[in-house]
């Protein structure tokens, strides 16, 4: 008695949508060569797939939800995405810096002044400029101020009215470049209340 090969019926939908690979695809193709019933089933599935793809796309409330989402996200406090090991590393570095300062002070000339170095980012970090504008600042004035430093807003303004700005085209690992941009902003824009920098890991 001839034993009929098992129809790979459960695989046919995935053959029809072209996502089968390797042995399974080969198995289906081998079977299809000799099975009219499965070829008919496949033709039906392909027809069905075409019709499902052609069904009227469901209208997504795209813009409404988009506006709501962005408003809510902007109003949230900025997250510091620092991993535990980064926090531990930062703490270790802080200890080393403090120890170094103490040793330097104990061993160095008593009246020597150590200048505070401006902030610069380390590899894997991003230095952002934190700006608070006067409440009366118009959108045009804010845009003008951002143009001075070639800045792009990446977050804000939150409840505190703070904008976080990335300095485009600037090597933020170079501390003095950031300091220079901050200085230019303070000088050029009358609507800036205060400016700072922040490292984002």
């Amino acid at each position: 008695m001839k034993i009929e090969p098992e129809h790979p019926e459960e695989l046919l939908p995935w053959y029809a949508n072209d996502t089968l690979t390797g042995e399974e695809m080969q198995k289906v193709e081998d079977h299809l060569r000799n099975c009219g019933q499965c070829r008919q089933e496949l033709a039906w599935l392909q027809q069905l797939r075409q019709q499902v793809k052609g069904l009227q796309p469901l209208e997504s409330p795209g813009e409404l939800v988009r506006a709501k989402l962005l408003r809510e996200v902007r109003s949230q406090p900025r997250r510091q995405r620092v991993q535990w090991w980064q926090a531990a590393l930062a703490a270790s570095l802080a200890v080393i810096v403090i120890q170094g300062a103490v040793i330097f002070r104990l061993s160095g000339p008593g009246n020597m002044q150590v200048a505070a170095a401006p902030i610069g980012s380390l590899p894997g970090q991003e230095a952002l400029v934190r700006i608070r504008f006067k409440p009366t600042a118009t959108e045009t004035q804010i845009r003008q101020a951002l143009r001075v430093i070639n800045g792009a807003v990446v977050d804000g303004p939150g409840d505190s009215g703070v904008y976080y700005v990335r300095l485009e085209g600037l090597d933020t690992t170079q501390p003095f470049e950031i300091q220079d941009a901050v200085q230019r902003l303070k000088t050029a824009s009358p609507v800036v209340l205060d400016v700072g920098t922040e490292l984002l890991s």
């Binding site: 469901l58 795209g62 939800v65 988009r66 977050d155 984002l200």
Partner: peptide, 22 residues
Amino acid sequence: IARGEIRALEFFYDAYHARVYS
């Protein structure tokens, strides 16, 4: 987005909102 870029969230939203809603 993981770095906190809202602009990237906008692009991601534009690319996937219809499929998520559907």
